[in-house]
């Protein structure tokens, strides 16, 4: 049953992604991206990643979509139809995809309990974190404690991006405002 839900959701993801390629109205493309993120969040629930699911639902569906809509409001919602035929991009994409599919043949089967990724530190986190950290949610324990520096680095990235956005959009407004004010006085 879980496998069936998984397959149906992944099929819907494919349809949404293809619709995003076909559409040229950027508002519709953004809404397709929102649907895509929501479906991805549903896939995460099916694959037992509940923390990731609600982060994706809040950040991917909510904040990203709002940021894109705000940008479309400033930039305009109609995309110009492509001036050249998309033959070269199609070839590049198919060759890259074929190389990646070739790579998957060496991967362990989906959901195999003895896959290498399940052998390294994950069992230790599951066995020791209730004694060492003392909270039942292992994802929170790893995020905030075992990989705390990772989360600190993440905060640095967000801070840098925030400063970058302010430099690009915020300071310029103030400068143009200051340039306007002497004219108003005279």
């Amino acid at each position: 049953m879980i496998e069936l839900i998984n397959i149906v959701l992944l099929g819907l993801l494919v349809i949404t992604a293809l619709a995003a390629i076909r559409l040229h109205d950027l508002f519709a493309v953004t809404i397709m991206f929102g649907i895509y993120s929501l479906l991805a969040a549903a896939v995460f629930v099916v694959l037992d990643a509940v923390d990731v699911a609600f982060t994706e639902a809040a950040v991917g569906v909510g904040i990203s979509t709002i940021l894109m809509l705000a940008t479309i409001g400033l930039v305009g919602r109609q995309e110009k139809p492509p001036s050249h035929r998309p033959l070269l991009p199609l070839v590049v994409v198919i060759v890259t995809g074929a190389a990646l599919v070739y790579g998957t043949f060496d991967m362990p089967p989906f959901a195999a309990p003895d896959a290498p990724v399940q052998q390294h530190v994950a069992p230790r986190y599951l066995e020791q974190s209730p004694h060492e950290i003392g909270i039942p949610n292992v994802v929170t324990a790893v995020l905030a404690s075992y990989r705390g520096y990772d989360t600190l680095g993440e905060l640095t990235v967000i801070f840098t991006a925030g400063v970058g956005v302010l430099v690009l959009l915020g300071f310029r407004r103030r400068r143009s405002h200051m340039a306007d004010s002497p004219e108003e006085e005279s």
Binding site: D48, A49, V50, F110, A111, A112, Q118, L126, P136, V138
Partner: peptide, 11 residues
């Protein structure tokens, strides 16, 4: 990260 028959990692 999925393990067949596994549950969400909340102990």
């Amino acid at each position: 990260g999925k393990v067949s028959g596994g549950a969400a990692p909340i102990l």
